[in-house]
Design a protein around this nucleic acid. Sequence first.
DNA 1: CAAAACAACGTTAGCGTTAACGTTGAGGAG
DNA 2: CTCCTCAACGTTAACGCTAACGTTGTTTTG
Lengths: 350, 350
Amino acid sequence: MTLEYPQTRSRRRKAARIEDVAAVAGVSAMTVSRALRGVDGVSERKRAEILRIATRLNYVPNSNARSLAVANSNLIGISLPTFANDVFADILSGMRGTFENAGFSTVIDTTEYRETTELAWVERLLSWRPAAVILTGIDHLPQVRERLRAGRVPTLEIWGHSEDPIDLCVGIDHAAAGELIGSRMVELGYRAPAFVGAPAGRDTRADLRVTGLNRAFADVAEMPVQELRPALDDASAFEVGFAALNALLETDRALPDVVFFLNDHMAFGGLMACERHGLSVPMDMGLVGFNALPMTRVLPVSLTTVRTPRTQMGIMGAQRLLARIHGVTPPRSTALPVQVIEGGTTRPQA
Amino acid sequence: MTLEYPQTRSRRRKAARIEDVAAVAGVSAMTVSRALRGVDGVSERKRAEILRIATRLNYVPNSNARSLAVANSNLIGISLPTFANDVFADILSGMRGTFENAGFSTVIDTTEYRETTELAWVERLLSWRPAAVILTGIDHLPQVRERLRAGRVPTLEIWGHSEDPIDLCVGIDHAAAGELIGSRMVELGYRAPAFVGAPAGRDTRADLRVTGLNRAFADVAEMPVQELRPALDDASAFEVGFAALNALLETDRALPDVVFFLNDHMAFGGLMACERHGLSVPMDMGLVGFNALPMTRVLPVSLTTVRTPRTQMGIMGAQRLLARIHGVTPPRSTALPVQVIEGGTTRPQA
DNA sequence: CAAAACAACGTTAGCGTTAACGTTGAGGAG
DNA sequence: CTCCTCAACGTTAACGCTAACGTTGTTTTG
């Protein structure tokens, strides 16, 4: 049996620790810690020298050790359905600025509209002991709600609206938005509505908007809103709207006189389909988008759509969550107002 | 002086630790650790019981403690310029799937095209001891390169191409891509090129493409590529392309006969501007995009553009990075090929 | 049937950092 | 000159987890 060498701790040059900095500076680790965090208790001379030495040694503090010691972190996790949607990008930019200024780091992930993915993400995230969690929408697996509540983690649900959020909620009332735009279309004389959106169940906001549309058209339309729910798969929203309306225009069924789309991109795709079929918009058919994305401003014809306060929503949500983290209790749930934008894809007032 | 109560450890019900689970299960903490991680050394009976107890106690492992103990993590940090660009979304989706399958978590952040933001992000990220780092492009502050190399962190630069990457690089040669599409336009008879992109310096890929265009047109054009570099600010790419071409069409200067855009969105904006001005595309002017985004497929006229292998790039980059993490050394740098897509916005072969 | 092999655990000792408290020496008040 | 105060440090003991090694009882093997 050969004698093993003792475990010499220098197998490979490891990253510098706070003690290494301390040794070089001839002080204790605690002093280095104080110097680097900028707290009291270190003379200016020493602090400057310690900082110099730290950079020279390429010292990078270990956040794992820090978070373990202080039993919290400044991480905020954000869950989005997808990156491929300008809506969420707008909400994000509103939130992130606010958090950065408050000294919090954000980690973002997407669920691709799968609830089980969201649950797995929540569990992984919680293992990092985040300061707060942000979820998109108000529909989550029961375990998500349980875990977050049990862990007493400040939680924000954004974009949707709920009377009984997990913790906090800032968004818009999608059913009310659907009813609002629907009512306006009723006023303009439309009577045969259709809706082009996501497959049922995938995006519950879409379902809510249809509910609202049906409320608006209940008294005047002969039949409920005709729903088209193409599979999205990997096609872009443009293509989905385009394909859906193409399919509609090629059937023998009675055509709707107004088509509501899940979002502006789909509506644009639909507009292209109408053009291809020689259908005149808005005379033969009205088209309505959702969100009032800036894209709509360059189209040859401006799109009728609904303006959603995405950036404002992000900022308000972030501010309330910060308040929550700091112990004060903000209003639990708020629905922000939306606004109808009438463009050239629906006929003017009769 | 009043006597203080001793620090009773139950000030507030804290989250369950591994020891709490162990106590309830009547085993040691180590056994719980083994059971939860699924490693050998625990009987199936005990493992099942421990799992039950852990969920009942709402136990969530503390990743900070784990990472500290094992001195590594399964985090991979990804830095993107922005979310508001389908290009990066495609690259992302290619990478993330690969990493998820390999058991790594990704944390994503955006720099908004600011190098100092990138540096700050790298420093924050390194403090979490990530398994690897991914940066977009090949232009970074020198400190970024130093820190990553000093820390021996596996690093991938993606989207651009460099002969001397920080560590690994997978992307496309933007200068070559510019030359490729430029040469094709020369063949088609175009002689007065213009380029609409980002402000100089903001996006160096744009500068490289202009370099390539100039190489292609050097022998036939009377003057170098006319460059338009509108400020982007918060306008969408659609609007930027639209505004830039509007401005161009309203000056008295000699018009270019072909306009290259930074990306497809801008090209579409440009197309809308031409339409508004009654300019016939491709007879009066050719328009060329970049990336071959799916959006281009729904336009009434298909866009001439350059297909970039974004998803493939993400996958290849991720695979090489994984290999790197596991100790094998993949090729340091690869430029993937791009492909010219000729559509209806440039004239056909004479 | 003793020795070796093995499964199934438990113990010890860190990982790098910081909160809480202790120590030191210089300067000021009385 | 003594006592007190205070700035500027140092010491100790966690934080929650796991690698490495030790221990026990049960099989297997020659």
